[in-house]
């Protein structure tokens, strides 16, 4: 399996497969999130289900592995590609009209997304699953956010600063996904002239569904917060 690291297509396959897996995770994550709008109780039940259980932890580790591989490969590929372009750069470049803006800026979009992942992990994972882990280890911690995830979500997004930051993140994610989804299929060879426009369309639909689901929660609680006059506490 050395071809996955020492051939250009192999490296791209790794990007494609990890990327596709992360898209599936996002779909699942977004679906789970939307539940909070309809039923905070159900949401909390899910949170409990995905708390510090062995399967959730294994899943988290697997997810972390995918993210790390995706990012590491992204940097390796970018460095190689930068070198392949040669020392001298073009003085004038112009984007071709059939070329998506996102496709030429995947690294930048990726970096934006990664930065927000840290914020996100601090906001949620650190205060929920991690706290639970600490609790299990015998530490004295506040478990209110662990047991009432829905309440915590409401509390966080009521703060306009967080809400806007999350929306910016989601916008970057949307661009990243519109290219990423069809590109993964293309890299895996599941594409041809007929499917090319279809995959591009599917990419946009998938990206939009994921982003809309995430954004719905943010916007819902932002407005709820604005109406309720909450302040930024998190």
């Amino acid at each position: 399996m050395t071809w996955l690291s020492n051939s250009s297509v192999g490296r791209k396959v790794v990007m494609g497969v990890t990327g596709a897996a992360l898209v599936l995770f996002l779909l699942f994550h977004a679906t789970m999130n939307v539940v909070v709008i309809f039923s905070p109780e159900a949401y909390n039940a899910i949170c409990e289900f995905l708390g510090a259980n062995w399967y959730a932890l294994v899943g988290t580790l697997g997810l972390a592995f995918l993210v790390v591989v995706h990012i590491v490969y992204a940097f390796i590929l970018s460095v190689q590609n930068y070198r392949a372009r040669g020392k001298e750069r073009y003085a004038v470049t112009e984007r071709q009209k059939d070329v998506e803006w996102a496709s030429k800026n995947m690294l930048v979009l990726g970096i934006i997304i990664v930065c927000f992942i840290f914020l996100h992990l601090y906001n949620f994972w650190f205060k929920m699953q991690f706290v639970e882990l600490q609790h299990m280890a015998g530490a004295d911690v506040d478990l209110s956010r662990v047991t009432d995830g829905a309440g915590y979500v409401r509390e966080l997004f009521a703060c306009p600063v967080y809400a806007v930051l999350y929306l910016v993140w989601l916008a970057a994610l949307w661009f990243h996904l519109t290219h990423g989804v069809w590109s993964a299929m293309h890299t895996l060879g599941w594409n041809n002239s007929i499917w090319m426009p279809r995959w591009k369309c599917i990419s946009k639909i998938v990206a939009t569904i994921i982003v809309l689901m995430f954004a719905a929660v943010v916007v819902y609680y932002l407005f709820a917060g604005l109406c309720g006059g909450a302040a930024c506490a998190a």
Binding site: V9, Q80, A84, Q96, E100, W182
Partner: peptide
Amino acid sequence: GFGNCTNTGACAAE
């Protein structure tokens, strides 16, 4: 020393 394809499609467009 050619680079890795990232499916931008600039090649086909040009």
